[in-house]
């Protein structure tokens, strides 16, 4: 199929599944005796009331989505964006408290994320440890470490329910558009994804990475070090998620609460974003914006319409799953062939 007809059919599928998801959402809302169309409209336009939240979530999900997408090109399934994100946030917060400024916290957060995922990649290539299992285990290790440090070393003595705050010198600026303000993380995320797209589609290494994932035999016979590319793809994934965590804490949340709520879920939700975006760095951006809009919207339906938050989350889940199904199918069939 040519590129144009492929894009056309893909767009048709996306619109059809989106319509189906919205219909299910409307039905759920009606089930709670809320006006179905208005509920869905509120969810889809949540950026009107909470532009900064939608912008921030979009940025984070785009980066964690990319963190899932990149290893897929090398034939790996990285579930570890969650851990890399949290480790990146934790290390950036610690570095900001210690030295201030932006360079050290960002660099160290990024490096920590990259090392964590890179480790999982190395285990896979060297010792054949399945990367899905290892990244899930690493996620839990990071999570408990985070909870421990948040409540001990990093705790704010005057505000014991959270950590100390990122000092002024380490905060990323916000952008003013008219009368609204949004975090600058969105700009960083968009720029990073654009670079990633260029890398994957327009460089020799990007091509080699994609061949390494698609056909190991031909890669080896052409002198491509498949193992190295696999580890590197995981390290890049960790880098992206670690960057997300770091700029989230420096640019938006500034502190972590004792249950880690400020840094939870971005990594896992990134998987849905990557699948919705057909694993393409550029298509991941609109997918992330949609997911962020819906997530933010689901928190609005309870105060406005009395529909429970869980029902809102359910609607988000249905829409995301429907949009993600075609790509998930493709990946699974490829996994089976492996």
């Amino acid at each position: 199929m040519s590129l144009r007809s492929r894009i056309a059919s893909e767009t048709a599928i996306v619109l059809a599944t989106l319509a189906a998801g919205l219909a299910v959402g409307a039905a759920v809302a009606a089930g709670f005796h809320a006006p179905p169309l208005r509920v869905m409209a509120t969810m889809l336009t949540s950026w009107r009331s909470l532009p900064d939240v939608v912008a921030e979530y979009s940025a984070m999900l785009a980066l964690t989505g990319a963190a899932f997408a990149v290893p897929v090109y090398a034939g790996l399934f990285n579930i570890g964006a969650e851990g890399s994100f949290q480790l990146g946030a934790l290390v950036a917060l610690w570095a900001a408290l210690k030295w201030g400024g932006l360079a050290a916290p960002i660099a160290l957060g990024v490096a920590a994320g990259a090392l964590l995922s890179g480790l999982a990649g190395w285990l896979r290539v060297r010792l054949s440890v399945n990367e899905v299992l290892s990244t899930i285990m690493l996620n839990w290790i990071v999570y408990w470490l985070l909870l421990y440090l948040v409540a001990t070393k990093l705790e704010d003595p005057y505000n014991p329910q959270r950590t100390l705050e990122v000092p002024r010198s380490s905060r990323l600026p916000w952008i003013t558009i008219g009368s609204t303000q949004i975090p600058s993380t969105i700009v960083i995320a968009a720029a990073v994804l654009a670079v990633l797209w260029v890398f994957l589609r327009m460089t020799r290494w990007g091509l080699a990475l994609r061949f390494a994932g698609a056909n190991e035999w031909t890669s080896r016979t052409r002198g491509v070090n498949v193992g190295l590319y696999r580890v590197a793809s995981m390290a890049v994934a960790g880098l992206l998620a670690g960057l997300a965590g770091a700029i989230h804490i420096l640019g938006y949340s500034h502190a972590i609460d004792v249950i880690g709520g400020a840094v939870k879920g971005f990594g896992y939700n990134g998987i849905g974003v990557a699948l919705m975006g057909r694993n393409d760095p550029l298509a991941i951006i609109p997918a992330a914006v949609l997911f962020a809009t819906l997530l933010t919207g689901s928190s609005l339906v309870e105060p406005i319409y009395g529909v429970p938050k869980e029902a809102g989350d359910f609607i988000v889940g249905v829409i995301v799953v429907l949009l993600a199904v075609p790509e998930a199918f493709r990946l699974l069939s490829r996994l089976r062939r492996r």
Partner: peptide, 29 residues
């Protein structure tokens, strides 16, 4: 069938087989 990736484009297969070992860094469209 072992040497090509059939779901990648003709141009990508060509570029890979030609340049994987050495070649221009930028492979624009």
């Amino acid at each position: 069938s072992k040497a090509l990736v059939l779901h990648f484009s003709v141009a990508e297969n060509l570029a890979f087989l030609r340049y994987a070992h050495e070649g221009p860094a930028l492979l624009t469209f």
